[in-house]
Amino acid sequence: MKNVKLNKDTAFKWLTAFLAFILLLLGIGILLKLIISSRLSFDAFGLKFLFSREWDPVQRLFGALPFVWGTFVSATLALIIALPISIGIAVFLSELAPIWMRKPVSFIIELLAAIPSVIYGLWGLFVLAPVMQQWVEPLLGKYLGFLPFFKGYPLGVGMLTGGVIIAIMIIPTISSISREVLSAVPAHQKEAALSIGMTRWEAIWKVMLPYGRSGIVGAIILGYGRALGETMAVTMVIGNTPNISLSLFDPAYTIASVIANEFTEATYELYISSLIEIGLILFVITFILNAVARFLLWRMKRFEEVRG
């Protein structure tokens, strides 16, 4: 009797282990396939691929720089916009909001992450882009036009609008993880801060956020990773022009967008291989960022356990 039970348990263990490994194998398989398929493009352009601005399928010239630029600038811009808002939300929901409000509002904010990217894109194209064109960009141009970032004609679709859309999409990620990090700060830290006459504001900024800093950094990197890989919504509002310009009003292009837009038109091997190679670049970057973020979050949890 005992043996039968044991055997069933063993079988179940192997089944679940197999299921878990499928995903791991799939990930490794994707990476290998990307490396193999980008071989052609790597042989043709070498490291120059990373630094060339040329993207001309007719002349059979491919360079990733405008896409890498567009990806990093749009994601960084999104992070600059999203970070203060997310930390504000996290602080409000974990410390300041009335108790009855905390759970429902956190829930709704987390639900925002479930809205399909293409819906954000539609909203971005039909609502956000006209608002940016008619109001936000002219105002920025008028008052901050002396900066190189706000020069040029307000088009509505471009780097700035792309950044704003991504910011809206990563706020749920950063704010919900930061909220969890803040809630995990032990009560004795806050009490110590209050007992020496800190206000709540000071307790949060000087004690609780610094205590949870590695977790907050993890949340930020995770949000940044999402921002780098975001495809659909950005494609719809960023303008899709492989262009390196300091002005945020100008249209740009991201890695994810160019792959989505051009893979159906890629009619010869080198073209496909070049698209796959920039895909590989994105894969590696986001993989590293996610790994770092997970490590920081894990270390904070472990640190917490060690300290008791």
Binding site: H188, Q189, E191, A192, A193, V207, P210, Y211, R213
Partner: peptide
Amino acid sequence: FQKPNPFPA
């Protein structure tokens, strides 16, 4: 307090 609670940061 009961548990020593310096600010670790």
